[in-house]
Design a protein around this nucleic acid. Sequence first.
RNA 1: GCUGCUGUAGCUCAGUCGGUAGAGCACUCCCUUGGUAAGGGAGAGGUCGAUGGUUCAAAUCCAUUCAGCAGCACCA
Length: 643
Amino acid sequence: MPVITLPDGSQRQYEGAVTPAAVAADIGPGLAKAALAARIGDQMIDLSRELTDDTDLALVTSKDADVLDLIRHDAAHVMAEAVLELYPETQVTIGPAIENGFYYDFHRDTAFSEEDLGAIEQRMHEIVDRDEAISREVWTRNEAVKFYEDNNEPFKVELVGAIPEDETVTFYRQGAFIDLCRGPHLPSTGRLGHAFKLMKVAGAYWRGDSNRPMLQRIYGTAFLNQKDLDAYLHMLEEAEKRDHRKLGRSLDFFHMQEEAAGSVFWHKKGWVLYREIEQYMRRRLDAAGYDEVKTPQLVDRSLWEASGHWDKFGDNMFTAASEDDRTLALKPMNCPGHVQIYRQGITSYRDLPLRMAEFGSCHRNEPSGALHGIMRVRAFTQDDAHIFCTEDQINSESVAFCNLLLDIYRDFGFTEVRVKFSDRPPVRAGDDATWDKAEAALRDATEAAGLDTTLNPGEGAFYGPKLEFVLRDAIGRDWQCGTLQVDFVLPERLDAEYVAEDGARHRPVMLHRAILGSMERWIGILIEQYAGKMPPWLAPVQCVVAPITDSANDYANEVAEAFKAAGFRVETDMRNEKIGYKVREHSVAKVPFIIAVGGREAENKTIALRRLGLDKQETLALSDALNTLSLEILPPDLAQAAE
RNA sequence: GCUGCUGUAGCUCAGUCGGUAGAGCACUCCCUUGGUAAGGGAGAGGUCGAUGGUUCAAAUCCAUUCAGCAGCACCA
């Protein structure tokens, strides 16, 4: 006689076992139709599950936030069914719902082509139209193993073996398709609807292990309705338009070429942007009490051996031989170099905290498949710094760092920042008391800075806990950029010490920290964030002066000189073209201020200003324009100082 | 690194059945002096990623290799 308690507190009693579907029908035909699954606590279950005990039950409809996962998981099953119908020789393996969609991994000797995707998608629509009932079956472990052994499906046999002992082995059947699956699922394939699309096919290692066979993964996406699907596809198109590789070339910021794979050729305009960012960061670091240094590119391998990097990352380091038979390595990071500077002379506790910053050019031999535009390169520059401090200073330094980072992100237009907090891993250096102190310091810092944190349990480095800062861009994508890592080990390995008040020598703690991450990647992110339309302070060309007829050329030069003298990055466009053509070109080039001058302007000492993105123009006295726009091109930190 | 796909003019791309290349934009010159997102005309521009092979003949077929793209693995 189970009593079912609904979220509103109402209770219903039943004679014997009852299914959520029956409960829904009991409440009303509308809910019976809308119900897709049910929920007991955190766990989602099928509508067809029989409830025999008293239960707190919630019915799940399309309004439920988790229902997308359900639909996507169903879509994965429908896709697997379609694939098996079309290509019966295929083995199915794993097919979960993921962020933005779903995938299913298949094993098949011949590759799926892009054309195959169309056929599979077509068949999926047919399966949805067939509205096959989806049923849950409980099997024994042995039955499951035997079933897959008989079918010669070793991948599935392995999966059965991986199910924890205390978990029930369940299968889901729809039509002729049956799959090992934890569930839950919709009541029938028809409930999936038609708002899905197969996106791409790619390789993926079995169980994510690069030593194991590669399977073929088909990615798809599914939504509750066509409108949501269209919106998602539209977002993907927008993202493609913002692609920094495309914009980087069309805006003439940089290029890359075969002979220097993974390295950037910065063009004039891109380099202006780069330098503007570097100068901004330099001002911010100066103000925050950092000392800038520069350390060598080529360093003998012995130093990397001492730091432990040779052992761990030697394969990814570029090396060079010198004539005296030394092996030198291009630095992949800056910390050992900074410790060498720290070690010059004797450091007193009075010198701490010592904040050593470098725009450190690093080289890492990234695997070819990892390279991606200027976001993942082999030669890059970190906005790196190491703070040498005492354990007691970890706290205040961390708080200061978080605030600096947030402030800088805000200046670049990023206001949504999350933090991943990685605490002590099972295997680690340092005693528990020290870890307690370091973890508490980092936690306090994020709280003081008002940051949301998510815990990454046990994911800290072996040398200390760390924070990773993830920002969200204008179209909702997440980028991990900044980091703050507490390090108890490197000072030991490279023998850094300070003399304390008691006259004895102690180890400092090192805080590794970066805000932008790498200059290259940061610029890539900025390009995508702004879709190439950089804010005026960062725009490589801030202002173009275009005469309307060549009789205004002299005045155009005069105006351009005035802007240049006022600190603008300005160009003139004296070409023999109509003003509409020039406006179009400079709009496409995303110049923030386009200034047209003709006879009228020359006569009145005015300019006709057109701001990027606006169709209208305004006529201003030249002097007024200089005053107004000068404020608009100020970097955010200087603008703040000027207020 | 792995799987799949791609590589033709500065850029974006077309090129059938193997018969030694084409468009638009950009560029150069000429005409046009035009008031806010493309005025008109002419011209120049290519060892078809590289190497090797098959063939009377290769952008096209095969092999190797390099690079790019998507994903996976990696990311100090």
